[in-house]
Design a protein around this nucleic acid. Structure first.
Lengths: 128, 128
DNA sequence: ATAACTGTATTATTTATACTAATACAGTTA
DNA sequence: TAACTGTATTAGTATAAATAATACAGTTAT
């Protein structure tokens, strides 16, 4: 389900939250779908359950998932709030990157051309 | 000269290399210009000289600066190599960011519109 | 030549944080 | 009742960054 780089400078629990956020935001994991249990995921990835728990706790704090003791952890209904926050972050990053590229002398047109050649994602299940 | 966040997860020496790289690539610091000495910069930023040295060593290794024992450290003549590598990195980041934005459902046109509204940098000294 | 700078190198210590380990407790479900 | 769930706590380990304290050699100006 996940690929974790234990040698990365990015902590394991943060790699986990990142990847899970993406799965949730992109709706690969649907609303109310159950996440793997803390212990089973820990066993799968051969890392400590506490590390998983830390990731889940963070995801819950940020509203991506909700947990029910005894039952499990589940994907929260997608809040616009979350997408909005993520968009803000992405836009800021975008501006920083493009800013640097422009500074390096690449004309704006070329940057735009680069984006134009990118493929827009398939949205098979968005017509509901 | 610099702002360092000692609490950031990004190590101090890496913050330093990042910022210096930008100053060099953007030619705020010109070719052969002398950098502050290891000790003086350490005193300015109230951090350990060894940390500065580590940053300088890295910058030298990557070809951004050159050091002469007894004299000081200086900005390397800007190599196209460096700009090329940096561009590669920036383009990859750009694609990742834009990819995520598109996944969040923002149409390509809007991303482009955002970039169009950005100001191109002044290039006062580029006409030589 | 001497003092005050430079970069460079080495070794030891401290500090911060992630991660692991080992439990324990309580709710859920079959 | 057994086997799951999430949650919490406490202690220990590992790693990397940063500090501290020196030392050595080249440069520069007086």
């Amino acid at each position: 389900m996940f690929t974790i780089d234990t040698r990365s400078r990015v902590p394991i629990y943060e790699q986990l939250t990142e990847k899970l956020k993406e799965l949730i935001v992109r709706e690969v994991m649907k609303e109310d779908e159950q996440l793997p249990s803390v212990r089973s995921l820990a066993q799968d990835l051969t890392i400590n359950p506490n590390t998983i728990q830390k990731a889940y706790r963070e995801l819950e704090r940020e509203g991506y998932i909700y947990s029910i003791p005894g039952k499990g952890s589940f994907v929260s209904p997608v809040k616009n709030e979350i997408n909005r926050e993520r968009m803000e972050m992405l836009k800021k990053e975008l501006e920083r990157i493009v800013g640097e590229i422009l500074f390096l002398g690449v004309p704006k047109d070329e940057v735009i051309k680069l984006i134009e050649t990118m493929e827009e994602p398939e949205r098979s299940g968005d017509d509901d």
